[in-house]
Design a protein around this nucleic acid. Structure first.
Length: 449
DNA sequence: AGCACA
């Protein structure tokens, strides 16, 4: 006779230990919810982010009378319940217990699902995401995609962290290990320097170099010219090799002085790899504290002619390198990325002169670096890192490094999180004395404190 | 501003 399944409304509700809260601000945390409710009793369970707008919640008290006291208090109070200034509407839930409180998004894990609202995929580069989320721990991998919910990113950390909301909607992903196929503007694996760069997915990073009329386009090259500013500490070929190898195979490096400053040419096999490296490293520092800041432009060179082994240059493409360097024996099949033992530093004849670089410059073009490029100043709120040995600076993004360690800095190998990913180690496992193991991409600061 | 999840 009477219809069933009708929702219970205000005046017909029966009391329940569970209260239903509406009109919450969407960024309202469980902690705020508990703060609001716990004056009335012991909260045994909550369920947040309920409803299409994720602005509803359930709170379950230990005792029915506690729920009744809260409900009746605000029913008669002149001051409504509030969360972040918004009136919160309270009523009894039509259920008597909260079931299945933890959705996958609430179960802590090492992979975050981040939804960035109000932007399109092109508005937020993966490097910015990496920079921001490196503040909370060591980022191993990132995958981005567009869903109905918005522009989303899966961010995999070395360890589970404690990321709070910074006007981003963040929940835990059910994933535990992201399967990243390519380094691209959409996805990165910061633990695997062998991963190929997806040549078809790079258009997004090219966007800023092309003006509206297409005439501002910077001439691309597979060779990058790096100008190193604020060079308080020595930058060796090996340091540069480590930094730039994160983006692909480095073929050749040459360091030279120009106009009183230090510059370096870094050659990749292809323009695509160079473009990724340029986009990722521009404005970042090799060392924490703003030291050895990199400014990158495309060189006019396409193939450097450098001394194979000097302290200012290196050619990693020479196949006979193995027999020249005892430590490299047995590694002939390894990528040239790793075929550069630091023992090469001890090679004789390392006195550098500008003649070490005899790059092939098209006639009429003078290799020069326009120093007007200003610091890539990023203004994120600085959040203390949750991992020892890790720092985050809003104005400088220290890259990692090897060799020279600034005073007060500590190698990540000693105080930072130790990567279980041995693929990051050089062949043979151990790093040379005084050198930390290579660790992923350069953007997370590897020295600090 | 009006009830979750599978």
């Amino acid at each position: 006779m009477s219809t069933s399944g009708q929702p219970q409304f205000r005046y017909t509700q029966t009391p329940s230990k569970v209260l239903h809260l509406r009109n919450l601000p969407w960024e309202c945390t469980e902690e705020e919810l508990v703060e609001l409710c716990k004056p009335f009793g012991k909260i045994v369970n909550t369920k947040c982010n309920v409803g299409a707008n994720r602005n509803q919640a359930f709170v379950e008290f230990a005792d029915l009378n506690q729920a009744i006291s809260m409900n009746s208090y605000y029913a008669s109070s002149s001051e409504p319940a509030q969360a972040r200034g918004k009136t919160v509407y309270i009523q009894y839930s039509n259920r008597h217990e909260i079931v299945n409180n933890k959705s996958p998004g609430d179960v802590p894990g090492n992979v975050l699902l981040v939804t960035i609202e109000g932007v399109e995929a092109g508005d937020v580069s993966i490097d910015v995401i990496h920079l921001v989320f490196s503040a909370f721990g060591f980022v191993h991998k990132i995958a981005t995609f567009e869903k109905a919910a918005g522009f989303q990113a899966l961010i995999q950390y070395l360890l589970p962290g404690h990321v709070s909301s910074c006007h981003l909607r963040i929940s835990y992903s059910a994933h535990t290990d992201l399967n990243i196929k390519f380094q691209s503007h959409r996805s990165r694996d910061y633990t695997n320097p062998y991963l190929p760069v997806n040549p078809t997915a790079i258009e997004g990073t090219m966007q800023p170099t092309v003006g509206p009329d297409g005439k501002k386009k910077e001439l691309e090259s597979n060779v990058l010219l790096a100008s190193i500013g604020n060079m308080q500490y020595a930058v060796t070929v090996d340091v540069l090799h480590t930094v730039f190898s994160a983006f692909g195979t480095v073929q050749k490096i040459a360091i030279f002085e120009k106009n009183g400053g230090t510059q370096a040419l870094v050659q990749y096999p292809d323009v695509t790899t160079a473009a990724v490296a340029k986009e990722s490293l521009e404005g970042h520092c090799i060392y924490d504290g703003g030291y050895c800041k990199l400014h990158l432009s495309y060189s006019r060179h396409t193939d450097l002619n450098v001394k194979a082994f000097s302290d200012k240059s290196r050619d990693y493409t020479i196949p006979e390198m193995g027999y020249l360097v005892p430590q490299a024996t047995g590694l002939s099949s390894a990528p040239t990325v790793w075929a550069n033992p630091h023992a090469a530093q001890t090679f004789p004849g390392s006195d550098y002169s500008a003649a070490a670089v005899q790059a092939q410059v098209p006639p009429g073009q003078v290799p020069s670096w326009d120093p007007t490029g200003q610091v890539n100043s990023l203004t994120f709120a600085s959040v203390p890192g949750t991992f020892p040995g890790q720092t985050f600076s809003p104005t400088s993004s220290p890259a990692y490094s090897t060799a020279v360690i600034p005073p007060g800095s500590t190698p990540i190998a000693q105080t930072g999180p130790v990567s279980p990913v041995q693929a990051n180690m050089r062949p043979g496992g151990a790093s040379p004395p005084g050198l930390p193991p290579f660790y992923g991409y350069p953007l997370p600061p590897l020295y600090g404190q």
